[in-house]
Nucleic acid binder design. Structure first.
Lengths: 175, 175
DNA sequence: GTCTATAGATGGATAGAC
DNA sequence: GTCTATCCATCTATAGAC
């Protein structure tokens, strides 16, 4: 069973992702988490503490994901492209939630996302040995992500990306 | 001299882009535009009317941009890639502002952005005659855009994209 | 650790003077 | 067309009971 603390962060993220920061009020979060506002404020004394708690979780998840990507049997590029299609995982949700906060000029959130991207880029560059290609692949995956975030129509994109990456000889990076 | 109406929309967009929807309150918009709240509410009777007014401007600008892209002397791909680096133009700002609103599950904003992307894709596909490539280029430019939106570090990306697109023979599409 | 009650500030919106 | 004054709902946060 998840701790109350985690359920509150889950609720905060769900509201950020689903309806944006404006809708993620303390009342709404408490309601979504099934606690009273007072109960929420016991765990997170201010709204800003919710943000900090969420970014802490993001960093933890990010470290684990980079390790998984590095060790992926299908190669880091395929792993990265496939997992960028926004599967709705807990990690996805936390990333998108952090993106919402970053857009409010929150330097901590921007920093956390930047660090994540740096870690991924490190693995891509390591396996591809081609910096320009690694950066371009990262951009493509950013876009798959962000389009998903914004609810834009994108079913056609992933097959197109696979086609072009195959053309570039970038898909199979196993030694 | 810009009309008061336009100055108000400019202020609304500036706040959305700079500090997010949460900060774009009627008070803040009125202040930024140099009018009173009452003055603002004469032109836009509710906050939602600000959103509608902004999306109307976006559509107007979008039509003009697609025409410019189609007629660009350097070819549509180059035009599209170069203008995607977030130059800070009025059109840029309105697009990003619309993106902020779209993230709050506003179907009208998502629709307006989707229509814009459709128009661009049409021009790309027309000049490249390669759908997979057109879609991938659009994704790359989405990402250049979105990373700029979120204040992520991206100076290294544009040269990388030029390199890879040249490798794909996609940069010069002039007949 | 969780709740209710409430304070104090800020938000969106109306009324009416100029 | 723009302003001030004001209303009411909502938001963040505190206090204190259980």
């Amino acid at each position: 069973m998840a701790t109350t603390r985690d359920r509150i962060l889950d609720a905060f993220e769900a509201l950020l992702v689903g309806q944006g920061s404006r809708a993620a009020t303390l009342d709404a979060v408490a309601d979504e988490a099934g606690v009273s506002k007072g109960g929420l404020l016991y765990h997170f004394p201010s709204r800003d503490d919710l943000v900090v708690g969420m970014l802490d979780r993001l960093r933890e998840m990010g470290v684990k994901d980079a390790e998984k990507m590095r060790a992926a049997p299908q190669g880091a590029v395929s792993y990265y492209v496939e997992t960028s299609k926004h599967t709705g995982s807990a990690f996805d949700r936390t990333m998108i939630a952090a993106a919402r906060i970053a857009q409010e000029s929150d330097a901590r959130a921007s920093r956390a996302l930047d660090d994540l991207r740096d870690a991924w880029f490190g693995v891509l560059a390591e396996q591809l040995d081609d910096e320009a290609l690694a950066r371009t692949i990262q951009l493509i995956c950013d876009a798959l992500y962000f389009n998903a975030i914004m609810g834009l129509a994108e079913e056609a994109s992933l097959p197109a990306v696979r086609t072009v990456l195959a053309r570039l000889g970038a898909l199979d990076t196993r030694a």
